[in-house]
Structures are given as C-alpha cells and as structure tokens.
Design a protein around this nucleic acid. Sequence first.
DNA 1: ATCCGATGTCAAT
DNA 2: TTGACCTCGGATC
Length: 284
Amino acid sequence: MPEGHTIHRLARDHAAWFVGHALAVASPQGRFAEEAAALDGRVLVGVEAYGKHLLHVWDHPERPYVHVHLGLFGSFRHYKPPGPAPTGTTRLHLVGPTRALHLLGPTACEHLDAAGWAAVRARLGEDPLRPDADPDRAYQRLRRRRRPLAAVLLDQGVIAGLGNVYRAEILFVLGLDPMLPAADLPRPAFDALWALAAALLAEGVRLNRIVVAPTAAPRHPDAPTRRSDRLYVYKRRACRVCGGEIARAELEARRLYWCPRCQRGHDLAPPVDLAAVRGGIGGR
DNA sequence: ATCCGATGTCAAT
DNA sequence: TTGACCTCGGATC
C-alpha cells in the first residue's frame, strides 16, 4: 500500500525504533548480503522520506545511505524481537533493541554514497509532506507538461508522493477534469491541489491509511470500515455525490477512476464541501 | 492448488 | 506502448 503517506509513516516509526542504536543487519534473501555485512553492527543515525523513497542514514564513512523503494508490492513487517525467522524472501533484516524489521519485495534496496543518493533525489519533484518543499517549483514543472493532469499527478518528478489512489481522490474533491492538460491548470487551482495533497497525505501518515471521505456512521460499532467508505471514487462503482456511475479508464498504463458528472472543471469546482474532507482542508 | 491483482517504476521497443 | 520485476494473499477452480 505504498504511496507517500506510507513511506513517511515508516520513516517516523523507524526513527523512533532504531535511530541511535547499533543494529544487526542481514539479507537472508541474499541480494543485499554484501551491503548488509558492511553495515552490520553500525549505528543508524537518521531516517528520511522523500515522496515514495525511504532513506536510512548510517554511521558509515563512505556509504552512509540505504535507499529503499517499495514499488508496487514491497512491504516492511515489524515484530518484537526476535520475531519470526526471516525467510528466503527477506531482502533486509534489521534487529534493534525494541523491534525486528523484515523488508520484502522492494523494487530498490541499495547501499549508496552521497553521490548515489544525490542522483536519486535529483529525479524527485516536490514532496508536500516535507517542510523544505517548494510548491512554486512544482507548479512551474507542472505547467510545462501538456499531458493530462491525471497523468502528471503520478509523475514523481513534479509532485513526489502521490499514487493512484490520491490522484483519483484529489481530482474528484476539487472537481477537476482528469483530462485537463496540466499546462492549463490555473494557479489558484494548483494552490488548492497542493494544500489538499498536503492535508490528505498528513492525515494518511496519522492514520496509516488513506482516508478522504467523511466517515459515515458505522453500521456496527466495531465494524471495520471498508475502503470504499473512506474514498470518493477509487475503485468505487457509484458516485457518492451525484449517484452516477464512476468511470474507469486506462491512462498511461494506470487505471484512472473519476466521476464524469462531478469532474468537468478546468478550474476549481468542488462537488463536496472541502471543509468536510478528511484532513481538514478548511475553506477554499 | 493455482491464478490474479496490487496504492510502482524503468528499460526496451 | 509494452514487458519485466519484486511478493503476498484473496479469489477461484
């Protein structure tokens, strides 16, 4: 389930569990074995998230960084140590005083020096969750693309951290037509989009899941909410605002969900009360 | 027991 | 634009 909120939550948790401690490091799966050996017993000094990229910073003179990208189905699991024995698919196994961590199926898990990490960072756009983010820069980049806005929202070189769920939900909440050429997005609409993305991502970090729609009264007090109750359009059948059918289409190899009736806007035309959206966007 | 999809990215074509 | 890749679990047979 990795969009930017997942990675920022991992960064926060890993920092709390591991930073300042010497850790046991191994790669039972083998593909990170040499790198793990070089870090085994060293102290983790920091953890950062940039969009969907996670960075572990180690006390190591030449190569202080471990860069992890979960891709579509990578995941971390954590246990009270010692936890279950790692299996042959555990790429990275970290053990500290309070947690044991298993990394499975990442697209990337690499040991980098400063130049290597700088190269990764250089490809990334602005992350709304980072205090050092520069929305002006993201807007300038976005305005240079003629592709549909929906495609550009997944471009990590423009805004870093949004994935398929957030893009569908953000476009719906703002009433924006997904096919609007990104270059035609007015600045006020971009500002609203940026603020909404930041608020929804922050709420995602807090809850460790994506929640956009106001939660309806639970059917049973303890009934787990279904995903479709938390969202407006992603993988839904009917629009919860107009009742019409949610459209789905393949756009640049990713499935796009939107409500053709509620999302005709080339500028802001929110079909819902923004103040009711999770994350507390407030007015405008 | 097997298939298939999943909130992603990149290289090859 | 397409395929390869990383792995798990829920749906299906």
